[in-house]
């Protein structure tokens, strides 16, 4: 990946991965712009060898798994923002299909 040249980037696949519907015209311009990032990667590659490794001081930031809030207190507030709901659920299009295509 890091040695990829501009032409080797599959821009359509990137758009697919980013779950973006992008028009052909825009894909063409992105195909020229996006490989720029590889130039930055090359600059960083030069730096890596000379830098010293530092070990950061670590601390636990995870709270104790206790005293949960009362169930459902935020449900209505959060569901209010959903584009579609069924009762206390967010409604979405079918995710899994029964038959393999």
């Amino acid at each position: 990946m890091m040695s990829a040249m501009a032409g080797e980037i599959d821009i359509k696949a990137l758009a697919e991965l980013a779950r973006l519907e992008v028009g052909d015209e825009e894909l063409a311009t992105l195909e020229r712009e996006i490989p720029d990032i590889l130039n930055f990667v090359r600059v960083i590659e030069k730096a890596a060898a000379s830098s010293e490794e530092e070990s950061p001081s670590l601390r636990n930031v995870v709270r104790a798994d206790e005293n949960p809030h009362e169930s459902g207190v935020y449900t209505e507030k959060l569901l209010k923002a959903a584009p579609a709901r069924e009762g206390n659920r967010i409604a979405v299009k079918q995710v899994l299909k029964k038959n393999k295509e």
Binding site: R19, L20, E21, A82, P83, I90, K93, Q94
Partner: peptide, 21 residues
């Protein structure tokens, strides 16, 4: 899905792609 714009489409993949696009 959870908030903001949601563009209707046939499949959930299409909902993601159209909404974000």
């Amino acid at each position: 899905i959870r908030y903001g714009l949601s563009t209707p489409a046939e499949t959930i993949q299409e909902v993601y792609k159209k909404t974000r696009g």
